[in-house]
């Protein structure tokens, strides 16, 4: 049976002091997985110098690398430059869009983006009141709408969603509940549940836990480095 093995990690938070530390951990990854997904927070401060370190760590890997940015990568208002640096290093950076890879005769569709917060059903912000509150929630809703559209048009054997923020509460277990609205939004899970996916991978919640499920039954994995404690995890999807 042909399997698609997906390596995934998030929150690698590279800086000059970690140059050369991550790449050796990726040695032999081509024997373990067909693709590497990186779920945002590539940098600490979102600077161009840090992005260059990340690019050098991920450049010319023997398997394709697909990444999204995280909130830290936006901190210095250089997210577009960071995206360009990563793309120049051969990394596919998804900004609320889809890509399809052909791996061992199987197609893998990946829809990805940063995602955003707002909270989880019953305990979340809504588009009501001050313009600042409405803008916060609208940002998440618009992202979820773009993911829904990208998934809707995706014709592939497997479908994976790559996010930075969490779509579910399950994988936040360990974080203070007071900050859940800043860690993710149920709107992200809702979009995936409506259109269908085999797996959602995210990061952002360093104190969270690895495994969860959406209300519709899609597997969710939090692969933030402090959570998984390894250079990456590998998830294997059976032939469709």
């Amino acid at each position: 049976m042909t399997q698609t093995r997906i390596a995934a990690v998030a929150d690698i938070h590279m800086g000059e002091d970690l140059r050369g530390h991550f790449r050796p951990k990726l040695h032999g990854i081509e024997h373990r997985a067909e693709v590497l997904l990186v779920g945002g927070d590539l940098t600490r401060h979102g600077t161009i110098a840090e992005a260059r370190v990340v690019a050098d760590e991920l450049r010319d890997l023997p398997i394709p690398v697909i990444a999204v940015l995280g909130n830290h990568d936006y901190h210095s208002d250089a997210e577009q430059a960071i995206t360009s640096i990563m793309r120049d290093a051969g990394v596919t950076v998804l900004d609320d869009e889809a890509t399809i890879l052909s791996l061992n005769g199987t197609t893998l569709g990946v829809v990805g983006g940063k995602g955003f917060g707002g909270g989880f059903a019953g305990k979340c912000a809504s588009e009501f009141g001050e313009p600042e509150t409405k803008a916060f929630v609208r940002h998440t809703r618009q992202i979820a709408d773009r993911w829904r559209q990208a998934l809707h048009g995706l014709d592939s054997d497997h479908r994976v969603v790559l996010s930075h923020y969490s779509p579910v509460k399950d994988t936040l277990m360990g974080e203070p509940t007071e900050i859940y609205p800043f860690l993710g939004s149920y709107l992200l899970a809702e979009a995936a549940d409506e259109e269908g996916a085999d797996l959602i991978v995210h990061g952002h919640a360093h104190l969270g836990t690895e495994k969860g499920l959406t209300p519709g039954g899609i597997q969710v994995r939090n692969v933030a480095v402090p959570v998984i404690g390894t250079a990456y995890m590998v998830y294997s999807l059976n032939a469709a």
């Binding site: 530390h21 951990k25 373990r32 797996l199 404690g229 250079a231 995890m233 294997s236």
Partner: peptide, 13 residues
Amino acid sequence: LVEVREPGEEEHL
């Protein structure tokens, strides 16, 4: 300190 270990067994979903 987070010690980043070598990856372990894969998970079959």
